[in-house]
Design a protein around this nucleic acid. Structure first.
Lengths: 335, 335
DNA sequence: CTGAAAGCGCTTACAG
DNA sequence: CTGAAAGCGCTTACAG
């Protein structure tokens, strides 16, 4: 590595290394003439600061770690991309890590981020994470954590969530108002907030329409393709089948479309379908899928803003729970 | 930050700090008893290595930087996710950066990665990158670069590409063999290899079918939604319109579907459509889109393998150009 | 097999 | 406004 160090700049200019550091930092106590000289030469010599050295001595990295369960899912890739933009405005860098929905990886990722000495961590917990000791430990180490979407519910951590319960209630109410009377729910895991909230919104809507939920029509399931499709087919295979399926997410709704196709059940006439997440393919499905859109930009912005508030201990830097309102998107999948 | 340092472990064990380092590194010259003791205590005390310090003194970070133009596009998010997995097998970390298709950001990203002292960089150049001085400079700094997909064609850098020309030729030949005779191409930029190759494959197929290309039916265009849709509509708005459109990628093909819908042109009977990239929505479109699938796993694996070969100067560590074969996926969009 | 010495490149009080 | 000193936590030859 052909490195130019501050020392070399100092030697060339016959000043001390410390003055170079300060000039480069735009420190107030260096006169502007010196600063200009230093910066001009730094450019010319192709000086590139060594963050590893800087971080070691300053104890700050201006870097935020992010932990997501997956990247190749448009919710995560979109939010990550937006976070890259937002973080940059604050002069920070972003280091994303992927847990692949496994707690063990999540823990490893956290350790790696700690080793890298990130200033703070934004996290979205993996599907099978139930205890949160590792995050409490982070807290003990003095490194702030902000959760988004899939969160650890605790007074120790700030969170950015969406009001999935209300959104689910509203879109289900819309569907029920259209006359469907036998609603089912292909649900998410109840140990994660988003699974619980969407299910609760579903139940709220049933209650307000005085419909008794059929327990065997509420199927909890994972995110794997096979499980989803199996559950969808199972629901539709019986003669006494639901006339409305509220899917935990759009991908599961897509499985319902496939299953309906298989049994020659017509959407929306014989079966209403509702998704959640507003993935791109929803408007390509035939009929177009009604779903709920998450405010991606705001999720990214608020998560970043919160973590930086915590890192920099800005005033009003207290634990906050931000709950955003998703948008109901009515298309064609409920008559 | 509640930090446990090697010094503290050494003090507790009444041995030297250097022995602790070596024990933790599994250095051969430390007896296994000492190693066990050190490791047990390190675990107990919650020791977390400080990479910034380690990197500073060892001059190695075991970290690979990746530069992509976007993340929220399934090609990139999928390849990135696979790279995370592959890199981990080699005991490396990955730091992705996003250029947002702008050369200025690409340069900034490279500087940041240099400051972080990554051992090597895997890159996919942005749309408007035409000169590659920055990469040559990287080379001069002794840091290896591997390009994938959108590459700098040069003998100085290893590349991982797909044979888009051949794939385009083959899928176009298939379509032409079905009887279409008025082919158009919504093309990519000719200054990037993938734009050039796909266009060339299109022309190759026309030549082998003795069809003279109509220059006004080859429209170069960007990746923006408006441009794409505008171009698609433009092609189909005239009475003398193409009966086959080869789109540079699936998203553009989707715009062709929309335009065809607008003009009530039936796919595949009145218009054949071909995409490239095999995005998820292709099989949801009606009719299902014929397209070309890229070998994502192999692209990720080979890129990582190459960069690590270069970083570690493994034997046979020479500049290589790996050209993979994509897969033709025939569905319903050509009769 | 273990330890003492030197250094990685930068920053941070502190003194002048 | 500038500089000398000390240190961040770790690794790398080298000596014993």
């Amino acid at each position: 590595m052909l490195v130019v160090t501050q020392q070399q700049i100092a030697d060339a200019l016959k000043i001390s290394r410390e003055t170079v550091t300060k000039a480069l930092q735009d420190h107030p106590k260096v006169c502007s003439k010196t600063k200009d000289k230093v910066r001009a030469l730094a450019d010319e010599m192709g000086y590139i600061p060594n963050f590893t050295a800087r971080n070691l001595s300053s104890k700050k990295t201006r870097t935020i770690g992010v932990i997501v369960p997956k990247i190749s899912h448009s919710f995560f890739s979109s939010v990550l991309e937006l976070m890259y933009k937002t973080v940059r405005k604050f002069g920070y860098n972003l280091i994303p890590m992927v847990s692949f929905e496994e707690k063990q990886n999540e823990i490893k990722n956290i350790k790696t981020l700690l080793s890298m000495r990130v200033d703070g961590i934004i996290a979205n917990i993996s599907q099978d994470t139930t205890d949160h000791d590792i995050y409490l430990e982070l807290k003990k180490h003095g490194i702030p954590v902000v959760f988004f979407d899939r969160v650890v519910e605790s007074d120790f951590f700030s969170t950015v969530t969406t009001d999935d319960r209300k959104a689910s209630y509203e879109i289900m109410s819309y569907a029920l108002s259209k006359g469907y009377r036998k609603p089912a729910h292909l649900a998410g895991y109840v140990n994660i907030n988003i699974g619980r909230e969407r299910r609760q919104g579903f139940l709220d809507a049933l209650e307000s329409f005085k419909i008794t939920p059929n327990p065997s029509w509420i199927i909890e399931g994972g995110f794997s393709e096979e499980t989803r499709s199996g559950n969808a087919r199972h629901l539709l295979s019986s003669d006494d089948r639901p006339d409305l399926i509220f899917a935990f997410n759009d991908s599961i709704a897509k499985c319902v479309y496939d299953a309906a196709d298989m049994f020659k059940i017509k959407i929306p006439d014989e079966l209403g379908v509702i998704g959640f997440g507003n993935l791109e393919f929803g408007s390509i499905l035939n009929p177009k899928l009604s779903t709920v859109a998450l405010p991606l930009q705001t999720i990214a912005d608020e998560s970043v803003r919160l973590i930086i508030d915590h890192v920099e201990k800005k005033e009003g830097n207290t634990i906050k729970h931000i709950n955003l309102t998703p948008e109901i998107i009515i298309r064609e999948s409920c008559r």
